[in-house]
C-alpha cells in the first residue's frame, strides 16, 4: 500500500513526542552515571555535561566513608531471604487454592488478594511494636519477613494463574502411579510452574532491593541499613558536605543490578507487572 504524504508526515510527527519522552527517560539516568565520575567541583562547574576524566574516587568514597559495602550486603540478604520466604509460603497455598477442592477456598483467595488493595500504612504502627516484642525490630531477618508478607498476595495471585495452566491429567496419572500429594506438589507441579516462579521471584527481588519506606520504619542502626536507607542518609548528609559525586555513585550502585535484571528478563518483568495490575 502506498503511503500518502499526509500519512508520512504524520508518522514522522508522531516520532517527535516519542523521541522527546525517550530523552526525558534516559537523560536523567545517563546523567546520574556521568555524575558519579565527576568531582564535586566539576559537578558545580558543569552539572549536566560530559565528565573531564572518568575517575572512580566517588565509588571508593561511598565504599569507605559511608559503608556502602555493608548496605549492599544487607540489601542482598533481605532480597534473597525475602524472595525465598515468599516462595515457600506462596507456592503450596497457591497450589491448594487452585487445585484442591475445599470449602472456603474462594474466601481465602479473596482474603489474600484484598491484601494488595489495603493500605498497609495502618498496619505498620502495630507491626512496629510486634516486631519489637519478637526481637525482630532493627533486624535484617525481621525486615525480610515483613517484605515476604508484603509480596505474598501478589505472588499467590500470579502463581495460581500459572498453576491453573498445568493439565490436571499429569497430576492424576502421577497419583495413579502412587505418588503422594507432597510428591505431586514438589516433583510435578513445582517444576512445571518454574516459569511462574521465576517471574514472581524476579519481581519480588526488584521490589525488595528497591524498597525504602518499610526499611526506614523498621531499621534503626546504621550497620543494618539497606542500600535505600544508606542512599537516603548520604543524600541528607550531602546538604552539608556537598558530596554529590558520592551520592551519584551510590545511586549507580543501586540501579545497576536492576538494569541488569531488566536487560535479561525485560519481557517477563513487563508481563508480570501488567498482569499483576490488570487482574488485581
Amino acid at each position: 500500500m502506498k503511503q500518502s504524504v499526509g500519512q508520512f508526515l504524520g508518522r514522522t510527527g508522531i516520532r517527535i513526542p516519542l523521541i522527546l519522552w525517550t530523552i526525558a527517560v534516559l537523560y536523567p539516568i545517563f546523567w546520574m552515571f556521568l555524575g558519579s565520575f565527576k568531582s564535586n567541583a566539576e559537578i558545580y562547574r558543569n552539572p549536566w555535561g560530559w565528565p573531564e576524566t572518568f575517575n572512580f574516587a566517588n565509588f571508593t568514597q561511598a565504599w569507605t566513608n559511608y559503608n556502602i559495602d555493608t548496605s549492599v550486603f544487607n540489601s542482598l540478604i533481605v532480597t534473597v531471604i525475602g524472595a525465598v520466604l515468599t516462595l515457600v509460603l506462596a507456592v503450596p497455598t497457591a497450589y491448594a487454592i487452585e487445585r484442591i477442592n475445599f470449602r472456603g477456598s474462594k474466601v481465602l483467595f479473596t482474603l489474600y488478594i484484598s491484601g494488595m488493595m489495603i493500605p498497609m500504612v495502618l498496619g505498620w504502627i502495630p507491626l512496629f511494636f510486634l516486631l519489637a516484642e519478637l526481637n525482630l525490630l532493627d533486624s535484617i531477618i525481621g525486615l525480610s519477613i515483613v517484605y515476604a508478607m508484603s509480596q505474598l498476595p501478589f505472588s499467590i495471585f500470579v502463581l495460581t494463574s500459572f498453576i491453573s495452566t498445568i493439565p490436571k491429567s499429569l497430576e492424576e496419572s502421577a497419583a495413579m502411579d502412587g505418588l503422594s500429594p507432597y510428591g505431586i506438589l514438589f516433583k510435578i507441579v513445582t517444576p512445571l510452574t518454574m516459569s511462574g516462579i521465576i517471574t514472581v521471584t524476579i519481581m519480588n527481588c526488584i521490589q525488595f532491593w528497591n524498597e525504602y519506606f518499610m526499611a526506614l520504619i523498621f531499621l534503626q542502626t546504621e550497620t543494618n541499613y539497606t542500600l535505600a536507607l544508606a542512599i537516603d542518609y548520604i543524600s541528607s548528609e550531602a546538604q552539608y558536605t556537598n558530596a554529590w559525586g558520592t551520592l551519584f555513585a551510590s545511586l549507580v550502585i543501586a540501579i545497576v543490578p536492576v538494569i541488569v535484571l531488566y536487560a535479561i528478563f525485560q519481557k517477563r518483568i513487563a508481563k508480570g507487572m501488567t498482569e499483576g495490575a490488570i487482574k488485581g
Partner: peptide, 25 residues
Amino acid sequence: FLAFCLVPTFIMFAIFTLYPLFSGL
C-alpha cells in the same frame, strides 16, 4: 496435606498482616 499447604502461610499472614491491620484500628 491441605493443612500442610495452607496453615503455615495463613499463620504468618494472620500474624504479620491481619493482626497489625486490626490492632491499628
